[in-house]
Design a protein around this nucleic acid. Structure first.
Lengths: 231, 231
DNA sequence: TGTCATACCTGATATATATCATAAGATTTT
DNA sequence: AAAATCTTATGATATATATCAGGTATGACA
């Protein structure tokens, strides 16, 4: 079960010099008073699509997925969020309800900051607001670019993308343990689970990767890059 | 050819009560001094992917498309922008170069506001910045939601979406003239030109629409909605 | 310890969609 | 006004991808 943590002060937070570098000590203290830090075990739901938005969410540790559920109760994954990624996405500021469900795909620590406090600080401090605008723009831009990218590629290119994504963006290593199932990969890059498995096997046969369950080892990054570029 | 217009004062602009409602007269005058209004004929390029960003773009009149060109010089349309839509998208604040090319698909008037002036005003005026953040969030959110939506639907659903989009979001009418070619529709909703044409024909045979070249008349909106919902 | 469910894997088949081919209007260019 | 080019159109074919079916392995759970 998720549990509320003994809250550490914002001064110690990884976000301090990132999202909050334009804030003075007084402002940080205000945020500190209006935040809650929660630990989630892998698989737990952090917030649900449709729920009222009362907080801005900072992912301090771990990995999460943003997803929507469609009528045919098929889940569709929008993106994977890592610390410093502004996991609330922008819907936080433009909508009353959460547009997406967020769940932990690794043990995670999320900080809930009351959104009214954040808005108040922005209204008072234009530099902070502008900085925040720039940072959140980047998140949305990335999501849009990624979605476009995935759509224009076919299956092999998409799998190549996902492997490169985990390798360079998330773990920064050639060998890593996939934090998601084949099914979740399928939901993320718009293809069937069977084909995710099939193409991973193809890559193995082609000598691009080594597979052992969730453990992936990239043997030939150049070749992977080429597959990606070809689409 | 595009031409610079005799600039009217920002007081008269449609954006004044929209994006600029948090600004006082002094700030508006500053913007007024640092803007240029340009008329573009249908088909002309407003800005190019890769160009340095120096201005925020307001579409005062007309209709534009945002697109990227891929290696195989195929064009991909990200979205259609109408007045009040923040056509610069968010890349304006997170990047140094334009991420997309923008071209006029109808005769258009675009206002170029120096971005440094805008940033300066935001830094000075938190309320303005926050307001701006909320409004631009909505644009990015819409694009993301639309892209996801299109991907999850198959051809008939996508064509239904496009017809509903022009009918309700752009023209607010059951009969309208498509401002784009079948090929451009294909580039916007990720399908082949031939299939765009084919499925429009199907819809005609099904009694959903009437077609006469670019003129479209929706005969049965309910049925169209049903096709859309089915995916 | 065994049963149940879930994740992985692979082959065969079905289906949606792209591509190719061809042709008749439109538009633009010369 | 003729030539050239683009858009719309439709049928035939190819192909990418999903679906279905049958496995084994893996982990949860009683």
């Amino acid at each position: 079960m998720s549990k509320i943590l003994n809250t550490s002060h914002c001064n110690q937070c990884v976000y301090r010099t990132w999202a909050f570098n334009k804030l003075d000590q007084e402002a940080l203290s205000l945020i500190n008073q209006h935040k809650t830090e929660v630990f989630y075990r892998k698989g737990e739901v952090i917030c649900r699509q449709g729920e009222n938005i009362a907080h801005f969410l900072y992912l301090r540790k771990g990995l999460v997925k943003l997803l929507t559920t469609e009528k045919n109760d098929r889940e569709h994954i929008i993106s994977i969020g890592k610390p410093l990624d502004f996991i609330g996405l922008l819907s936080i500021f433009s909508k009353q309800q959460h547009a997406y469900t967020i769940t932990a795909i690794e043990d995670s620590v999320v900080c809930f900051v009351e959104i009214d406090v954040l808005k108040q600080l922005m209204a008072q401090n234009g530099e902070f607001a502008l900085d925040f605008l720039e940072k959140s723009s980047r998140v949305a831009d990335d999501v849009i670019a990624t979605r476009l990218n995935i759509n224009t590629k076919q299956l092999r290119g998409r799998i190549a993308y996902i492997l490169m994504f985990f390798s360079s963006h998330i773990y920064n290593a050639m060998a890593f343990e996939l934090p998601v199932s084949r099914k979740e990969i399928a939901q993320l890059i718009d293809m069937s689970t069977e084909n995710v498995i099939r193409i991973l096997s193809e890559f193995r046969k082609d000598g691009i990767i080594e597979i052992e369950g969730k453990l992936i080892k990239i043997l030939d990054y150049q070749k992977l890059q080429k597959v990606y570029d070809l689409g």
